[in-house]
């Protein structure tokens, strides 16, 4: 498949597709981060995670419409506001869901799987009823549209770089919260021994609720990034949940570095292969490679080494 290109061409193609894959990387990473936080904290596999992302995408869309209609002068900055709102909206919904549904199902993994799957269907229908079945697209402000011309053949999209920088920032913030803050200490204590965490004075239920909300909120931010690579419809989130599981499993649950490496590898493989092959072929090849690697390393790319 590479036969028709010269070496220089190939290098340029790899570079361009690599940069084009940056937004996909961001979406994967933020989604996987949220999923991994929730799974690590309470052993809940959130099947509705894609719908939390789509809520963020709809919020971004509404924010952009609002700015276009009422604050056109500030339109160039709407994305920052949208991201914050997306985080808050998805986080608030997450908190509500944890309170109303998830907390009654702890220690029943199959039931949570079914319940969150049901929740994803309910949310999809809600989106359909509220926003309509048609997919919606978001207009980007002018400054995000262009690209940096690096060489004759290589262009880097500005929005890709921008979203990636934001994603890295958010990942660092999440890492800080989990590993260095007082709150993160409580989270990790609860993860390791829920009963004992309660007995040293930690309100484990509140920790659960806010952790679930944090994971969902981060998915909402992923939704903001998502609006740049796809149009938002009621079922768009579903397409991403499988990929996100892959990222988490491939990276090795409970490892932040692993999640980052895995999101990067998968998004880049997919994006590069898509140039040469059809989208579905690219996916098949990526999947096969991941399955192969996981057979050799079932614990994922990275795993934490501690004596339990």
């Amino acid at each position: 498949m590479f036969g028709d290109y010269s070496l220089g061409d190939l290098a340029a193609i790899f570079a361009m597709q690599g940069f084009a894959g940056l937004i996909l990387f961001s979406v994967f990473l933020l989604m996987a981060l949220g999923l991994a936080i929730i799974f690590g904290q309470m052993g809940v596999i959130n099947m509705a995670h894609g719908e939390f992302m789509i809520l963020g995408a709809y919020v971004t869309w509404m924010t952009s419409n609002f700015f276009q209609a009422y604050l056109p002068a500030l339109f160039s900055g709407y994305f920052f506001v949208a991201m914050i709102l997306a985080f808050l909206a998805s986080g608030a919904l997450g908190m509500l869901v944890e309170w109303g549904l998830i907390r009654h199902l702890y220690k029943r993994p199959l039931d949570t799987l079914l319940a969150t799957w049901g929740l994803s269907l309910i949310l999809q229908q809600c989106y359909r009823s509220i926003f309509g079945a048609r997919e919606v697209g978001v207009d980007l402000p002018q400054w995000m549209l262009g690209s940096f011309q690096v060489t004759d053949a290589i262009q880097i999209p500005i929005n890709g770089v921008f979203v990636m920088c934001l994603t890295i920032l958010i990942t660092c913030a999440v890492a800080y919260v989990l590993y260095w803050s007082r709150w993160g200490r409580q989270v990790r204590a609860v993860v390791q021994n829920r009963v004992m965490a309660g007995a040293v004075g930690i309100n484990t239920e509140r920790v659960d609720r806010y952790t679930f909300a944090l994971g969902c909120g981060v998915a909402g931010i992923a939704g903001s990034a998502f609006t740049m690579i796809g149009s938002t419809g009621p079922t768009s989130g579903q397409l991403y949940i499988v990929d996100t599981f892959l990222v988490v499993v491939f990276g090795g649950a409970a490892s932040l570095v692993g999640t980052i490496a895995s999101a990067f590898t998968i998004s880049q493989a997919q994006s590069t292969l898509e140039f040469f092959l059809s989208g579905s072929m690219a996916k098949v090849l990526t999947l096969l490679a991941i399955v192969g690697i996981l057979m050799l390393r079932p614990q994922g790319l990275f795993s934490l080494k501690v004596r339990k």
Partner: peptide, 30 residues
């Protein structure tokens, strides 16, 4: 715990993946 009870369980049950300092700090929440 907030009322003033503290507990050292049989088998210690310290948080093994956290550092010694972090282990003590979990008690500071209360």
């Amino acid at each position: 715990v907030a009322q003033g009870l503290a507990y050292v369980p049989q088998g210690r049950m310290i948080f093994s993946a956290m550092t010694v300092e972090e282990n003590i700090e979990t008690g500071l929440v209360a």
